[in-house]
Nucleic acid binder design. Structure first.
Lengths: 161, 161
DNA sequence: CTAATATGAATGAAGG
DNA sequence: CCTTCATTCATATTAG
């Protein structure tokens, strides 16, 4: 059965190691057609519809569809710019990192001296984010800090539903 | 000035000139810890403090911290929603499944945790299924769809690939 | 088997 | 807060 685009090793488990989605020719054609039809940024409505359509040809998720369109857009634009690259000063254009426009922000939340620290959300992933491996350089300092604030951390809601 | 975040060799002048700030493992750990501790929306006061702490491990600005928390919040909320939706939905089985709320616009983002110890590629599989350009499998369906939307095709993109 | 390329996916930054 | 762009990473595929 054509479960995913990537046929790895359909042996033991039914989980083909969901690596990254591999759009099939048919799916690509559809996506390209839509893109070329003028739909470069399909709204949710359209995205779902497209996903449904693509699903018939192969497993695909809304995220995949959105990612596809997003990447497509970026690539197209970048390609155009790269091609058009000319008469432009290669100067670094200055890297002003001081765009802190944090005027007042909405930092009027959760009172520290109150019991409103009840987070509804909170990822249960601590060592996620990246595949970095502490080098032990200054990890000691981090550890110290962590040991100091280790307390609530009850953000992990294993919502069993 | 440029406040590059990724500073591999502070002495060497061969800085890869990172456009955007790349939080280091230690910084990420601290940020995540704070977030998980209940501080999901630190006020300016706290933001500055955090920045100070992070600065010791690498160049970082208040804006970076603010952005980080902002993105983190959105990501968490999205993940929670996606998780809830996925719990009930057996899913379309396949690649990524991200059902964002997408009110009426578009969706984005897709959190994923990859903690796999991969030794790199190493697949000795030489015979690949290969993807022929439409084998005529279900192209009929695709054609139907294409016939439905074929029109002006305002695609102003010369894709040569 | 290693290198380069293509593309999907993740994250930071900015706009609304 | 939500949406979107831009940059970067990771992996799959193809070439050498």
């Amino acid at each position: 059965m054509d479960q995913e685009g990537a046929s790895q090793s359909p042996s033991t488990s039914t989980e083909p190691v969901r690596s990254r989605w591999s759009p099939k020719p048919e799916q690509i054609l559809i996506l390209e057609s839509i893109f070329n039809s003028g739909i470069v940024n399909p709204p949710k409505d359209e995205t779902v519809r497209i996903r449904k359509m693509l699903e018939k040809f192969g497993a695909v998720g809304d995220a995949n569809v959105f990612y596809w369109f997003q990447n497509r857009r970026s690539r197209s634009r970048r390609r155009q710019r790269q091609l058009q690259a000319a008469t432009a000063a290669p100067a670094t254009s200055g890297g002003a990192e001081d765009h802190q426009h944090m005027t007042a922000m909405t930092m009027h939340q959760y009172p520290y001296s109150n019991s409103e620290i009840d987070l509804g959300f909170g990822s249960c992933s601590n060592s996620s984010s990246a595949n970095y491996f502490l080098n032990g350089t200054s990890s000691s300092q981090v550890s110290s800090f962590l040991l100091g604030l280790s307390s609530s951390s009850g953000g992990c809601e294993s919502n069993g539903m």
